[in-house]
Computed example of a mutant assay.
Amino acid sequence: MPDIRINELVRMWIDGWVVSRGSSDPIDEPWGWTIDVGQPRQVARHVLPEPAEADVRMIVAATSAPGTWLKLFAEDQSVLPWVGQDWRRDSPGFLMTCHLEPERTGVPAGYTLTSWTRGGVSRVLVRTRDGHFAARGQIAHVGDQVVVDQVETAAEHRRKGLGGLVMRTLQSTAYEAGARTGVLVGTPEGRALYSSLGWTMCSPMTSLWYEPSDAAQ
Rank of each mutant, 00 (worst) to 15 (best):
G164H: 02
G163T: 07
R158M: 08
G182L: 08
Y194C: 00
T187F: 08
Y175Q: 07
G190K: 06
R158L: 08
H157A: 09
T181P: 02
Y194L: 01
A174G: 03
G161F: 06
Q171D: 13
A192Q: 02
Y194I: 00
G164N: 02
Y175M: 02
A174D: 05
G182W: 09
T187C: 12
A154P: 04
Y175D: 04
A155F: 08
R158H: 06
E176T: 13
R168T: 07
E189I: 09
L184S: 14
Y194W: 00
G163K: 06
P188M: 12
G186S: 15
S195P: 00
A179M: 08
T181Q: 15
V166N: 08
V166T: 10
L193R: 00
A179S: 15
A179K: 08
T153K: 09
Q171F: 11
A155L: 13
G186P: 12
T169D: 05
P188W: 11
L184M: 15
A154M: 13
V183G: 10
E152Y: 08
G190N: 04
S195K: 03
A154K: 07
L184P: 12
E189G: 03
L170W: 01
K160E: 11
S172L: 04
T173D: 10
E176K: 13
R168W: 02
L193C: 00
G161N: 05
T181L: 15
L165M: 05
T187S: 15
V185K: 12
V183Y: 12
G163P: 05
G164K: 03
R180E: 12
T153Q: 10
R180C: 11
A192P: 00
S195G: 02
R158V: 07
Y175S: 02
S195M: 00
A154Q: 11
G161A: 08
R191P: 00
G182Y: 09
G161I: 09
R168H: 03
M167I: 11
L184T: 15
T173E: 11
A154V: 10
T169C: 03
E152S: 14
E189R: 08
V185M: 15
V185P: 06
E152G: 12
P188N: 10
T181E: 14
T181S: 14
V185W: 11
E156K: 13
G178Q: 09
K160C: 03
L162E: 04
